[in-house]
Design a protein around this nucleic acid. Sequence first.
DNA 1: CCGGACTCCTGGTTGC
DNA 2: TGCAACCAGGAGTCCG
Length: 317
Amino acid sequence: MPELPEVDVVRAGLAPAVTGATVTAVTVFDERSLKRHAGPSEDFVARLSGATFDEPRRRGKFLWIPIREHQAETTDPEAPASEARASESPASEALVIHLGMSGQVLLRDPDAPLDRLTRIGIAINSPVFGRVRVDFVDQRIFGSMAIDDLVQTPDVPDESVPSQVGHIARDPLDPYFSDTAFFAKLARRNTGIKRALLDQTLISGIGNIYADEALWASRIHYDQPTSTLSRPRAKTLLAEVRLVLGKALAEGGTSFDAQYLNVNGESGYFSHSLNAYGQQGQPCPRCGRPIVREQFMNRGSHFCAYCQKVRRAASAS
DNA sequence: CCGGACTCCTGGTTGC
DNA sequence: TGCAACCAGGAGTCCG
């Protein structure tokens, strides 16, 4: 399941191909992949056709490509075409991409056969790559594409995000992420730490895999109450989160397959380096006792029952 | 505010 | 061999 590193590999892989590219054709093969688009597929196609893309952006697991300008007929017949043509006007809309559980974005030769699970195909004319196809492939259809309005963020000038991303917190690799604000929110919360790590409105980009990995590295039990985490332990956890995300990012970047122009949402896993996730029954790399798997939050939690125990708050009796 | 249940969804795997 | 049941969970919603 793509988390921040995988999504960022996709962003980085898309950037050289789509930046400055113009959309020449859009095909929606499965409307269910437009579940985050507020409108019918015809509207999606109309708003995307003729669009010119800006550099792709990311927050947490959300990815979007700002639309620099639009050369298709405006949907509002009253609007004078010349007014919307101001060359330096900031993008007001974006193509929003969420990979969900199984989404992939593939850059393909225009004549390449369609993957069986392609849900949306976008043909573009790229200044660098020429004519290519941007295929959205998604087996389980938890992912989606959408055209959404960009809205100014409240805390950083000249920064905007799609309206549907507005509630998503900054991710720990975002330069404007506030560590102290994060610690303060953790202390105020009355919930378990893994729940908090997976709460995209508190800290974004972390999914089940990297939550388990960061908790293992920090020797923290998934259900440790956030309010009982000491500041040093919370700092350690955040540092381990950044470490595990950064490491995956580095490995994902290197596994990028340039020959296929294949921007693959699942290519970034550093499966060789997993210490806890999916390692049930395997010895804990630290103490040798078996990693266990428990059902938690409707998903698997992998941890070392010896290294990672719920600790009482220091003030408790 | 919190947590649990439920929804979306299907290909690959497992089990009979 | 064949088919059904099961499994993976990101994110949103609803309810108690």
